[in-house]
Design a protein around this nucleic acid. Sequence first.
DNA 1: TTGTGTTTTATTGCCTCC
DNA 2: GGAGGCAATAAAACACAA
Length: 197
Amino acid sequence: MSTIKRSKNKSRRFSDEQIKSLETMFDSESRPELRLKMNLANKLGLQPRQVGIWFQNKRARSKSKHIENEYAMLKTKFDGLSSQFDTLRKENQTMLIQLKRLRNMAGQKDDEVQDNYQDPMKTATSAKPEILRAHNNELFVPSCYDAGKTVDYMEETDFLNVADVAQDSLTSPDNGCSFDSCTFLDNPGCCSHWWDL
DNA sequence: TTGTGTTTTATTGCCTCC
DNA sequence: GGAGGCAATAAAACACAA
């Protein structure tokens, strides 16, 4: 870009009155046609080109402000969901600890009664599928981990692993489910399985 | 007063549409 | 191919702390 021409065209800031008129016009029409620009320029004692440039710059400012607002809104939304997730995760951990205690108690009683009984839990967990990160780094939970039917076959630690991996996905900036409106908030295919935890 | 950061006006180059 | 829009940028004007 040239640095020569500027010295000839010293920029003067527009007066409050000029700005007010331009703002008013912008509110009703952000892309006025040439005729309107000419009229406005005439009325304000400006060159039509100056009016055109003002509208162009104003559109740019308006756009960046809009993006800023949208970002703030999404961030608020994200923070809320994140703390909600954290609460649920802690609740889940507490319940799993409780479950483990109950299982231990139940196991002791079983030992007394059935010495040679083969625990179905062991059979199931020896063949249990791994929780994987599939392509695009998305958390992949095999179907046998779906809520309801097969929860009994999961070890407590697996629950926690799922929670940890999901938490990583939520907070880490360099993974597939990073914080942005597309992947996190708008795309139900990306992260919806977190809520099944 | 002055150094520095921010805002505003203006230019340039590229792109799209008719 | 010309008109108009947009992104990137320059430079003047302004705000403000030290």
